[in-house]
Computed example of a mutant assay.
Amino acid sequence: MIYTVTFNPSLDYVIGAEKLEPGKINRTTRENIYPGGKGNNVSVVLSNLGHKSKALGFVSGFTGEALEKMLDDFGCYTDFIQLDNGFTRINVKINAGEETEINGQGPKISEEAIGKLYEKLDVLTKGDVLVLAGSIPNTLPEDIYERIMARLDGRGIRIVVDATKDLLMNVLKYHPFLIKPNNHELGDMFGVQLETDEEIIEYAGKLKEMGARNVLISMAGDGAILLDEHGKVYQGRPPKGEVLNSVGAGDSMVAGFVTGYLNTGDYEKAFELGIATGSASAFEYWLAEKEDVVKLLKKEPELYGL
Rank of each mutant, 00 (worst) to 15 (best):
Y13W: 15
G231Y: 08
G154S: 07
A96I: 02
S135K: 09
A276I: 09
G191F: 08
E268M: 10
E119S: 15
S53P: 12
L167P: 09
E284Y: 12
I136P: 04
I102N: 08
E199Q: 00
L130T: 07
I201V: 15
L152Q: 07
L306V: 13
A255R: 10
G156Q: 08
L140V: 10
E289G: 12
V131I: 15
H184Q: 08
K24C: 09
I136H: 07
D153Y: 13
G97H: 03
G106P: 04
G223L: 09
L56C: 06
A249Y: 03
A55T: 04
G265T: 05
A96Q: 02
G16E: 05
L273P: 05
V254P: 02
G241F: 06
G127Y: 11
R147M: 12
S279W: 09
N183S: 04
D197S: 12
G127K: 13
A249E: 02
G260K: 05
Q235L: 09
S110D: 04
G39L: 04
P107V: 04
M210G: 07
L244Q: 13
E31H: 13
A255G: 10
L168Q: 05
L262I: 14
D79W: 07
K19V: 12
K116R: 14
L83G: 03
G39F: 01
A55R: 07
S110W: 00
V123T: 15
I25H: 15
E209R: 13
Y77Q: 12
T277H: 07
D197T: 10
D188N: 12
E300M: 14
K52V: 09
E284Q: 15
